[in-house]
Simulated assay, not measured.
Amino acid sequence: MTTIDRQLVGYLKDAHALQEHVEAALSELLTTAADEPDICRPLGHYAERTRAHTREIEARLHAHRSSPSIIRDAGQLFAAVLEAGLGRSRRDPAGRHMRDAYVAVHLQIAAGEMLRRVAERAGDAETARIAAAMCDDAQLMSRELSDRWDLAVDMSLRQHGVRDVPPPPGGDR
């Protein structure tokens, strides 16, 4: 295996671990936002796309005679579980989960961009295509989340018992 192939496999393993983490973060947000179809619809679709990308990454790892890194995946899952556990002790799950999903989506964009570029240089067009699709989906989800910050604030305030809150300046909701 050449140096660039080793790099590519490393980025594939990192992307797989990140996808596993994002799936856990999305699950938490979907649970928190279960009563908000305006958030659940795009998140549910994105969760499906994330699972599909995870399977595609696994296939690319197998094509390179490798497999997901149990240690990397376990570390990412442990971090997700730890975050979820700590988050339950806080009283703002809606705001925290929205923030975490937004950050996770941007991590996916960064991981996908690096994976795509290494794959292109390694001559792996299929991995580059998958990475580009991951980035496209993550950028779309980033816009979806950005359009819903006021809804996340409303959910957070309701969780704290605040009911009569004026709409945001400009009435955007």
Rank of each mutant, 00 (worst) to 15 (best):
H21M: 15
A47R: 10
K13M: 10
S27N: 14
H21W: 14
A59Q: 14
Y11V: 11
R41C: 05
R51Q: 14
L12S: 03
L29H: 08
V22M: 10
T31I: 02
R49M: 09
Y46A: 04
L43T: 06
I39G: 03
I4T: 12
A33M: 06
R41W: 11
A33S: 07
H21E: 15
L12K: 05
R49S: 08
H16G: 01
E28F: 11
Q19A: 15
Y46N: 02
L29R: 04
A34F: 04
A24I: 05
L43Y: 05
K13P: 11
A63Q: 08
I4A: 04
H21L: 15
D14N: 12
H16P: 00
H53L: 02
D14P: 00
I57H: 02
V9T: 07
C40I: 13
A17M: 03
R6Q: 10
L18S: 11
I39E: 06
R55V: 11
E20P: 05
E28C: 12
P42W: 01
L30Q: 07
S27M: 09
T54C: 04
A33G: 04
A59M: 07
D5F: 13
E56M: 11
H53Y: 07
A24G: 06
A25G: 04
L30Y: 03
R41P: 02
H62N: 13
D38A: 13
E36H: 08
S27Q: 14
L61N: 08
I4P: 01
P42A: 01
E23S: 12
A63Y: 00
A17I: 01
A24H: 09
A34T: 01
H62M: 15
V22S: 11
A34M: 02
A33V: 07
E20T: 09
T50A: 06
L8F: 00
L18K: 11
P37I: 01
C40L: 10
K13V: 05
V22F: 13
T32G: 00
G44H: 03
A33I: 02
R51K: 15
G10C: 08
E58S: 11
P42D: 01
T50P: 04
T32C: 03
R51G: 09
V22C: 10
A59F: 07
E36V: 12
Y46Q: 02
H21N: 14
D35Y: 01
